[in-house]
C-alpha cells in the first residue's frame, strides 16, 4: 500500500500531470489560455508518430515474442468485454437510453492513446520496463470496441443499418489509427538504424510535447465539464467505476496469461481508458441520436482525469503488488 501511495504522490507531482491540472484550472477559471487548433492536432500527431515508431523499433528488436502475443490476446479480450460491461452498467445504474449507452460503450471499448502514453511514461520513470510493443496492442485496441458497441446499438429496437462498409472504413481508417499503425510499421522496417536517425525527435522532445498536450487536454476536459455536460451523479460514478472494472479485468487476464507486472500495469491502463478521438468521430456518424453531452464529458471530463491523476499509479502499484 505504501508503494502505491508513493507512486501516486510521484505521479501527481510529475510535470505532465501538473500541466494537465494547470490546463484544467485555466479552463475552469475561463482563462483565455488556449493552444491554436493546428498546434494541438500537431502535438497529437507527434505523440502518435513517436509512440508508434518506438513500438515498431522495439518489436523489430524482439520479434513476436510470447509476451507480445499474450498482450495482443488480452488487449483484444478487453476491447470486446468492456463495451458489454459499460453498456450494461450505464443502462442498469444510470438508466441511460439504449443508443446513448451504446455510444458510451464505444468510448470505453476503445482506448485513450494519451492515457497509454502517460502509463508508459510513468512505468518507465518508476523503473518498470513495459514492452514498447504495447504500442501495437494499443493500436489493435482502438477499433474492436467501437464495432462491438455498434453491434449492441444495432440489436436495439428500430435500429437502422448502421454497420455500413463506409462506416467501417471510417472507423478503421481513422487518422490516429493510420498514423499509429503506420509509424509502428516504419519502426518495424527501419529498426535501430531508423531510431539512430530519429532519436532526438521521438525521444528527446517526447516529455516536453506530452506536457504541452496534457495542458491542452486539461483545457478540453474543463471545457467539456462546463459546456453543457449532462452528467448526473450516477453517470459520474459509472465514469469512475468503469476504469476500475477495466483495470481489474486487465489484471485478472494478465495473471491468467502470466504477463509480467510492467506490461500488466500498462494493459490495465488500456483496459481502464476511454477513447476521445476515434470513438466520438465514429459515433457521430453511426449513432447521431446518442447524446454527446453525456459520452464526451464522461470520457474526457471524468475518466481521463481520473486515470491520469490516480489510475495510472494505482494500476502500476497493484500490478507490482499482485504479480511477482
Amino acid at each position: 500500500m505504501e508503494s502505491i501511495l508513493t507512486l501516486a504522490a510521484a505521479n501527481l507531482l510529475s510535470p505532465p500531470v501538473l500541466f494537465f491540472f494547470l490546463g484544467a484550472l485555466a479552463g475552469f477559471a475561463r482563462s483565455d489560455l488556449s493552444l491554436p487548433d493546428a498546434v494541438a492536432k500537431g502535438l497529437s500527431l507527434y505523440l502518435l508518430l513517436a509512440i508508434g515508431f518506438k513500438g515498431g523499433v522495439a518489436a523489430q528488436a524482439h520479434g513476436l515474442t510470447p509476451d507480445f502475443a499474450r498482450a495482443i490476446g488480452l488487449g483484444l479480450a478487453l476491447s470486446l468485454a468492456m463495451p458489454l460491461l459499460a453498456y450494461g452498467l450505464v443502462r442498469a445504474v444510470a438508466a441511460v437510453d439504449r443508443v446513448t449507452a451504446a455510444g458510451i460503450a464505444a468510448h470505453y471499448g476503445s482506448i485513450s492513446i494519451v492515457t497509454f502514453v502517460a502509463a508508459m511514461d510513468f512505468a518507465e520513470a518508476s523503473g518498470l520496463a513495459p514492452g514498447r510493443y504495447l504500442a501495437a496492442v494499443a493500436a489493435i485496441m482502438e477499433t474492436p470496441g467501437i464495432v462491438a458497441a455498434l453491434f449492441l446499438a444495432a440489436r436495439g429496437a428500430g435500429a437502422g443499418p448502421r454497420l455500413s462498409p463506409h462506416l467501417l472504413r471510417d472507423v478503421f481508417l481513422n487518422g490516429s489509427i493510420v498514423l499509429l499503425v503506420g509509424a509502428f510499421a516504419i519502426g518495424l522496417i527501419t529498426g535501430d538504424a531508423g531510431m539512430k536517425r530519429l532519436d532526438l525527435f521521438v525521444n528527446g522532445l517526447f516529455a516536453g510535447v506530452l506536457c504541452l498536450f496534457l495542458l491542452e487536454m486539461g483545457l478540453v476536459a474543463a471545457r467539456r465539464l462546463t459546456g453543457g455536460a449532462q452528467l448526473r451523479p450516477a453517470l459520474v460514478a459509472c465514469g469512475l467505476v468503469l476504469p476500475l472494472i477495466g483495470a481489474a479485468l486487465g489484471l485478472g487476464g494478465a495473471m491468467l496469461l502470466q504477463i509480467g507486472a510492467a506490461d500488466a500495469a500498462v494493459l490495465m491502463t488500456l483496459g481502464a481508458s476511454a477513447s476521445y478521438i476515434a470513438a466520438p468521430a465514429a459515433i457521430r456518424i453511426a449513432l447521431p441520436e446518442a447524446d454527446p453531452g453525456v459520452y464526451l464529458p464522461l470520457s474526457i471530463g471524468v475518466t481521463f482525469p481520473f486515470n491520469i491523476a490516480i489510475g495510472v499509479p494505482l494500476y502500476a502499484g497493484v500490478a507490482v503488488a499482485m504479480i511477482p
Binding site: 493552444l35 487548433d37 494541438a40 492536432k41 497529437s44 481513422n174 487518422g175 491542452e216 478540453v220 471545457r223 467539456r224 459546456g227 453543457g228 476521445y276 478521438i277 470513438a279 466520438p280 468521430a281 465514429a282 459515433i283 457521430r284 454527446p292 464526451l296 474526457i300
Partner: peptide
C-alpha cells in the same frame, strides 16, 4: 454553446 473541441474530431 459549442466549440471546435480540438482533437475531438466528432464535434
Amino acid at each position: 454553446r459549442w466549440n471546435d473541441a480540438h482533437m475531438v474530431d466528432g464535434m
